[in-house]
Design a protein around this nucleic acid. Sequence first.
DNA 1: TTGTACGCGTTATCAC
DNA 2: GTGATAACGCGTACAA
Lengths: 327, 327
Amino acid sequence: MITMTEIASLTGVSQATVSRALNGSASVRPEIAKKVLDCAREHNYQPNFIAQSLVGNKTYLIGLVVSDIGNPFFAELAKAIEREARKRKYSIMLFSTDYNVAKEEEDLEIIRRYKTDGLIFTPASKDDDVVDKRLKYEIPSVSVTIDMRRLDSVFVSHAEAGEQVARHFLGLGHESFLFIGGKDDDKELGFLAGLDKGGVDIERDYFYSSEKGSHWRNAVAELVKARPGAAIFAHNDLQAIQVLEALKELEVSVPQDVALAGFDNTFLGKITTPTLTSVAQPIDEMGRLAVERLVEKIEGSGEGPAIRCKLEARLVARGSTLQMARI
Amino acid sequence: MITMTEIASLTGVSQATVSRALNGSASVRPEIAKKVLDCAREHNYQPNFIAQSLVGNKTYLIGLVVSDIGNPFFAELAKAIEREARKRKYSIMLFSTDYNVAKEEEDLEIIRRYKTDGLIFTPASKDDDVVDKRLKYEIPSVSVTIDMRRLDSVFVSHAEAGEQVARHFLGLGHESFLFIGGKDDDKELGFLAGLDKGGVDIERDYFYSSEKGSHWRNAVAELVKARPGAAIFAHNDLQAIQVLEALKELEVSVPQDVALAGFDNTFLGKITTPTLTSVAQPIDEMGRLAVERLVEKIEGSGEGPAIRCKLEARLVARGSTLQMARI
DNA sequence: TTGTACGCGTTATCAC
DNA sequence: GTGATAACGCGTACAA
């Protein structure tokens, strides 16, 4: 791994001149430049990003913190982000938190230490103190998938998504409903609002289950036992697919006995039987916009208010919510 | 982002002393140490990894180059690798090549420039010149999933996997066979060997199709039309699932009309209908071993011959190859 | 046009 | 025990 200094002594000029030649800088005698360039090529010179970072105070690194890279949704998002980042000369440091808040904290520490130019993250929590922590990190950040209010965010409205699902369920004539997901998920709020607008008696016909552990299994079992015409909304496709399998075990058929909808619209929903109704997030666009916005913050003038970029959620109806399964 | 020098002036000692105090180094007067530590804590000091890297010639960075992070197999592998790496204080720079050789080259350049301590990669090709390039990169590398002979590798034998599939198909009484995959895939060689041992007339009853484009669609269509009792072996689960969908469109039933096996044993195979027979690679173990071996190379004495760590492939029989679909 | 010299934030090797 | 001081590889103001 040859350095500028070595090239300098090899070509008999100063390291400064090598630097200038290599960077195509203004004034350096053509013959010298050629000699330097040739020498560099010959020895396969590669600039040392570490050294450049130290002096330039710029790493061209983006920290990417996702909840679970094993979830195809996040994997596809990471793919989109990596693609966009590379277009702009940035590289990705990947962290998968496994929804573990402590690990996430550690990851952020590490990211700070590496002085990544920016941070893209999928928040595990919307708590104010989490937001504050991000702000305190002073490093340019963009939240993806969740609207973090005081932070730059790229997302689809989970509330609207929930409402879409509610309308969809109601349009199909369902009469009791179960939401499976986290406690502070806007999808539930929107779902509830939609059901309420549709005249559903929330107290009587709406149920909630945490996605943790297998509480939801009991909830599902009870629901299908007691409630014909029930509909289940799972907070993501992975969860929905688990529900689908549970329903198969219970020998209730989807969508005849119970309807099911997921969220994310990953390709998983296309390969199950029945196929899975899900709310699509425009993954590639989210990745692109997140990187765009982040780079803008990094390279741009500076502060300005947080930009919250809201994209359209789109319900994709498939076999799990149709009267007639058409595969 | 406070620096050692700043802490030094704040506490009225030299930067060198701050360094010693912060690193818990031997000799520094307790009271001084306390003052420094307090000051550091108060200002939330974070060591600058970039500076440390420059002087220490060690980045604690591992470059991870996978073929497609959107493929759940690689995503899960990345997850395992990240987990193991963090245990050893290393962080991951992620690159997804999309099976694009040119992009892979670029990624490797970038990795060199960042001076990552090591490299873990899933090779797109086994060509000798690829190997040579890796060796030339002088950076400690480990190949995962593919045995690269002259390079440290962690893998399951694709040939043995192919043979297992062949035996499995033969045991179920199949009589004609199609392999879908790349041209230099050991899975095909093993598959062929297994079929041959089983007395199959390769010329007559064996077919090959590239996985590129949709050539394979024609191959599949022709096969099921002309050959009752056919069996298809796809080079990975993603491909197998595409085949499964194509078969549904063709209205041939699996496994009654045609058997199907994949490779990787991702969770995808559990959610399709029928479920998918696949050859399991021990993902977590592969990730663990790859990181272990890499760190060993990085921190270890030095060279030594390449260690090729061969793990057991295990065929997991599911619905797509059973006479009786048991879901 | 080119070289010298300095600084980026550390670690490490010296003297004191 | 502590403070100068020299690296590490590079960019760059300044002087020549």
